[in-house]
Nucleic acid binder design. Structure first.
Lengths: 187, 187
DNA sequence: GTTGATTTTTGATAAATGTCAAAAGTTGGC
DNA sequence: GCCAACTTTTGACATTTATCAAAAATCAAC
C-alpha cells in the first residue's frame, strides 16, 4: 500500500486528509501467472495498481492474439475503454508473472473524485502522463519500420525484454515473431 | 463562444458561476488557410478550441511531412506534449481552412483548474474521451492493413474525406498516396 | 476559360514484412 | 536428468506496401 501512496504523491501531492482515505478504498489482490484479470465480453469495473509483477493486455483478432500493452510495477492498469464507458471489454488482461495488485472499484473512485478536488486533480494529471505515453507509441507504431520500433524499445523500455517472451513482444511491436527474430539477429 | 460553452456543458455540466468565468479566459482568433498555429521547436503555451474550420498536426520525419491528426469543429487542439510538459513542440499545426478558434493560455487554464473542482472534473472527463479515441486509432494503426484502415475511416470519420486532400489522408493512415489511390480504386 | 501549379492516378519495380514449415533451443514438471 | 510442451530461429517463398517516373486530373489565379 505504501508503494501506491508514494506513487500517487509523486504524481500530485495530496493532503494528509485525502491520503488517509485511500487505504480503505483499495483491496489487495494476489494473482498467479497466466490468471486473467479482465476477460473479453465482461464489463471491467475495477482500476488496478500493479505493485509487483507483470501483465499484458491482448485481444483476439482473426484467430490470433494481439498483445497491445504491458504493465509492470507502479502502473495503473485496467481495460480503460470498458472501465470508463461501462461497456463489455474487448480485450483480455492476463498475468505474465505472479503479481500483487490493489483494486479500486469504479463506484469508490467516482465517489473520491466527486468529493475531493485534489484526487480529481491527481487523476487528471495521471491521464496526461498516460496520454503522452500513448501518443509516443502511436507515432512509433504508425510511422516507423519494424527495426526502428525494436530499437526504440531497446532504448526506452529494455526491461520488457527481460520479462516478456519474444512472441508477445513481436505482437506488441506489430510484427511477426519471425521478423523480430531477424531484426534481432542483425544487431 | 456559445458553441464552446455548449460543448463544455455537453461533456460535464458546470455551475452558472463557473461557466460565467470562461468567456474572459478565452481569446478569439481568426486564421487563414495554410497559417501555422504551432511551429516545431517553439513551446506551445495555448490550448485551442476549434469553433469553425479544419486543421492538421504533422511533423517532419526524414525530409517528409507526416500528418498524424486532423481537427474539426468542436475539437480541442494543441501540441499536447509541448503544452503539458513545456518543452518545445516536435510537431507543426497548420490550418487546412480559414478557421475561428478560441485560445486559452496554460497559466489561465491552470488557474481555473486549481480554483474550480468542476473545471478540473470537466478536463478529466475530456481526457478520458480523447484517450479512448487515441487508443482506437492506435490499435487501428498497428494491427490493420492499409485497406482496413481506409475502410475504418470511411465508416467512422467519412467527413475527413470531404475536407482534406488525399495526400494528407494517406499520411494520416500511415500509407503512401499511391497505395491509398489503389485502395480506393478497388472499392 | 486558359494556364501553370499541385494533386491524384497508373505502371513497373524494389523493399519490407508475412506465412508456412521445419529445425534448434529453452523450460518446467516429474 | 529426461521428456514433452512451448518458444525461437532459419529458410523458402508469397504478399503487401513503398518508390520512382510519368500521365491524367484537379485547382486556383488571372
Amino acid at each position: 500500500m505504501q508503494q501506491l501512496l508514494n506513487h500517487i504523491q509523486n504524481i500530485s501531492a495530496l493532503s494528509p486528509g485525502a491520503l488517509d482515505l485511500l487505504p480503505d478504498c483499495f483491496k489487495k489482490i494476489y494473482l498467479s501467472k497466466n490468471d486473467y484479470l479482465v476477460t473479453e465480453g465482461k464489463v471491467c469495473r475495477y482500476l488496478y495498481f500493479l505493485e509487483k509483477g507483470a501483465i499484458r493486455g491482448f485481444y483476439n483478432l482473426e484467430e490470433k492474439e494481439v498483445t497491445h500493452w504491458f504493465g509492470f510495477e507502479k502502473d495503473f492498469v485496467t481495460s480503460f475503454h470498458s472501465f470508463i464507458t461501462g461497456e463489455p471489454a474487448v480485450e483480455n488482461i492476463q498475468l505474465l508473472e505472479g503479481s500483487i495488485l490493489w483494486a479500486i472499484s469504479k463506484e469508490t473512485l467516482s465517489d473520491l473524485l466527486s468529493k475531493h478536488h485534489e484526487i480529481e486533480r491527481f487523476v487528471r494529471i495521471a491521464y496526461e502522463k498516460y496520454y503522452i505515453r500513448l501518443e509516443e507509441r502511436f507515432v512509433n507504431a504508425q510511422f516507423k519500420t519494424a527495426a526502428e520500433r525494436y530499437e526504440n524499445l531497446l532504448q526506452h523500455t529494455p526491461y520488457i525484454l527481460e520479462r516478456v517472451p519474444l512472441g508477445f513482444i513481436a505482437s506488441y511491436l506489430g510484427i511477426s515473431p519471425e521478423t523480430l527474430s531477424r531484426v534481432r539477429s542483425k544487431l
